[in-house]
């Protein structure tokens, strides 16, 4: 019997709280990647590669390579934090730790559990972004206060990627198979979303594909905010990410119900 989507109440916040409690225990470890990653990338790409690349043309100006990739790094960080949270980490909780089974015997229902996981994934993106913003500020390549707009973008982008990750968790047979979406979904976006070079470098067809990637739209929002430029195209990126989430969140709930409730 398929009962469809159950009513979702505020109780999904209980799952968020549970994950927060666990996170708070190990926060020191959780803070290391968002601190170290931008430094490593900026040293390798900004100083190393940037020396060869020089300045990059963007929106009619020329900007340093480090300043160009910094918002790309922030965007990748947004994608990875929520996506890895709702794939590998949620899968471990669901499959190995049977945490969801235990919670299903309490007043929460499955939809609340899954929504709580996705919102938690978005929160991880938000927190990691905040840490990374602080680190990048020391390099003097962020323009304030507009760079603060990256925080709500982190939550929205985290929601989109958290829900997409949860969709994969709903259909993946074993944890090793996550390699597939990482290779086919995350890696191409990592490289071809305007993160490390302007999309204008690509042929038209490739650019068209790139605009289908959610990461491209996160970059579209982060780069102007980081550089202190306001553009009109950004509203489309917000609409895209909202629509993407409005499809993937219900899809994730549906797939997880199909997976767990027989």
């Amino acid at each position: 019997m398929k009962t469809g989507l159950q009513t979702i109440s505020w109780r999904f916040l209980r799952i968020w709280q549970r994950n927060w409690d666990v996170y708070a225990r190990t926060w020191r470890i959780n803070f290391i990647p968002p601190i170290l990653e931008p430094i490593l990338y900026l040293v390798a790409f900004g100083a190393g590669l940037g020396y060869l690349v020089g300045e990059i043309p963007w929106e009619g100006r020329r900007i340093g390579y480090a300043a160009f990739i910094a918002p790309g790094l922030l965007s990748i960080n947004i994608m990875q934090n929520s996506f890895f949270e709702t794939t590998y980490t949620s899968f471990v909780r669901m499959y190995y730790q049977k945490t969801f089974d235990a919670i299903l015997a309490t007043p929460l229902n499955l939809e609340e559990i899954i929504l709580g996981e996705i919102v938690w994934g978005a929160t991880r993106s938000l927190m990691a972004t905040a840490v990374m913003l602080v680190v990048l500020s020391f390099f003097g390549i962020l323009s304030y206060p507009s760079a603060l707009l990256i925080l709500p973008v982190a939550f929205l982008g985290g929601l989109a990627f958290g829900a997409a990750g949860m969709c994969f968790t709903g259909i993946i047979p074993t944890i090793e198979v996550f390699n597939l979406p990482v290779f086919l979904f995350v890696t191409p976006m990592f490289l071809f979303s305007g993160t490390f070079f302007p999309l204008e470098q690509l042929p038209f067809w490739a650019r068209a594909i790139a605009y289908g990637f959610p990461l491209t739209h996160i970059v579209e929002l982060c780069r102007p905010a980081a550089l202190g430029v306001y553009r009109s195209g950004q509203v489309w990126a917000v609409i895209y990410l909202s629509l993407f989430s409005m499809v993937t969140v219900p899809l994730a709930l549906f797939l997880m119900r199909r997976r767990l409730i027989h």
């Binding site: 109780r11 209980r14 709280q17 549970r18 409690d21 730790q97 089974d101 235990a102 919670i103 007043p107």
Partner: peptide, 24 residues
């Protein structure tokens, strides 16, 4: 439940407290 599905990310006491929260 038949399987031991205690939360390995939490301590013994926290297992009880977190569960209590699910019941408000």
């Amino acid at each position: 439940q038949q399987d031991n599905n205690l939360d390995p990310d939490l301590s013994v006491r926290e297992n009880l407290l977190v569960f209590a929260r699910y019941f408000d």
